[in-house]
Computed example of a mutant assay.
Amino acid sequence: MTIRKSIIMLGIVLAGMGAYAKSSVVQIKGSDTILNASQAIVEEYMKTNKKARIAVTGGGSGVGIASLINKTADIAMASRNIKSSEVEALKKEGINVEEVVLGYDGITVIINHGNHIKNLDKKTLAGIFAGEITNWKELGGDDAKIVVLSRDSSSGTHAYFKEEILRGGDSKSVVEYGQDTLYMPSNQAILQEVAKSKYAIGYIGMGYMNDTVDSLAVDGVKPTFETVADKTYPIAREVFWYVDSARDGVTKEVVDFAVSDKGQEIVKEEGFVPAH
């Protein structure tokens, strides 16, 4: 985490401690994919709502939704759809959850600058991440073992990539990630590992993409703002905030701000396609 982000989070948690010392902190937890975007939204909201108290933390989509269920979060950030079992668990806690589309993300498959592969189709990606294709020479590259990096199981991106790529959208499939897959705790960790490892491959949210790595075309389509917006990029998906439909106070206000024109402009600035 950068010094700037650390300062932001400290300011968010501590702001308004005087007059609002007895009030609760609004907790936003979950997806690391949209963590930075959510922090930026909250930072901007705080500029005109200085007495509000909001904490934004990651941990993965599963962590966020679980926190919403056990009432240690007011808003869950998620990069996957909520499961029916999670909706039922929320209902048992008296929460009628509302799905708020924050924006759209293109899951970006990344490789090292030293790797000259430019395009892979979804079937080949499935073979790589399932551990069936293990050497770059099978794909026209160097004779070297493919180092496969994935997000860990608490990540919504991990779940989405498995369902859409490894299992090809087949709800009956039981294909899992290969046994040699290295599981990483964050988008940033995958980015850094691919940047230093010539034969690594991984995936990140498009908001994390930078010039330290190369992105692959998937089925001949590169992940760009335009291809995610028009749905031609094959691994594009919605990203969400999940929140009680009966919300009020600061929780309601920050959700309203997130989907406002200003909030959606921040989503765009953070590298995602806005919801409207």
Results as ranks from 00 to 15, higher is better:
2 T>G: 07
5 K>C: 01
9 M>K: 15
9 M>V: 08
11 G>C: 07
12 I>T: 08
15 A>K: 14
19 A>Y: 06
20 Y>A: 15
21 A>G: 05
25 V>I: 15
25 V>P: 08
25 V>E: 12
26 V>T: 14
31 S>N: 11
31 S>Q: 11
31 S>M: 10
32 D>I: 13
32 D>L: 07
33 T>Q: 05
33 T>G: 04
35 L>A: 12
36 N>R: 12
38 S>R: 01
39 Q>T: 12
39 Q>L: 14
40 A>S: 15
45 Y>Q: 06
45 Y>V: 08
45 Y>A: 06
45 Y>D: 05
45 Y>P: 06
51 K>H: 11
54 I>C: 04
55 A>Q: 14
55 A>Y: 03
56 V>Q: 09
58 G>L: 10
58 G>K: 08
59 G>V: 10
59 G>S: 07
72 T>P: 00
72 T>D: 04
72 T>K: 09
76 A>I: 09
77 M>H: 11
81 N>P: 13
82 I>M: 14
83 K>W: 14
85 S>P: 10
89 A>D: 12
93 E>Q: 14
94 G>C: 02
97 V>Y: 05
109 V>R: 00
111 I>T: 13
116 H>A: 12
116 H>M: 11
117 I>L: 15
118 K>V: 09
118 K>L: 09
118 K>A: 12
119 N>I: 03
131 G>H: 10
134 T>E: 08
134 T>R: 10
137 K>C: 10
143 D>R: 12
144 A>H: 10
145 K>L: 07
150 S>Q: 14
153 S>K: 15
153 S>V: 11
154 S>V: 14
154 S>P: 02
158 H>C: 08
162 K>R: 15
162 K>T: 11
165 I>P: 07
166 L>Y: 10
166 L>H: 12
168 G>Q: 09
169 G>C: 05
171 S>Y: 04
177 Y>H: 14
182 L>S: 13
187 N>I: 06
192 Q>I: 02
194 V>A: 02
194 V>N: 02
195 A>N: 06
196 K>C: 03
196 K>L: 09
199 Y>R: 11
200 A>V: 03
203 Y>V: 06
204 I>W: 00
204 I>E: 00
206 M>C: 03
206 M>F: 01
207 G>S: 05
207 G>D: 01
214 D>R: 13
221 V>K: 00
221 V>R: 01
221 V>E: 00
222 K>N: 06
228 V>C: 05
229 A>I: 04
234 P>Y: 02
237 R>H: 15
238 E>D: 13
239 V>Q: 01
241 W>I: 11
243 V>F: 06
243 V>T: 09
244 D>E: 02
246 A>P: 01
246 A>K: 13
251 T>H: 06
251 T>W: 05
254 V>G: 05
259 V>E: 03
261 D>M: 04
264 Q>K: 07
265 E>S: 14
266 I>P: 08
269 E>R: 13
271 G>A: 09
272 F>Y: 14
273 V>Q: 04
274 P>K: 06
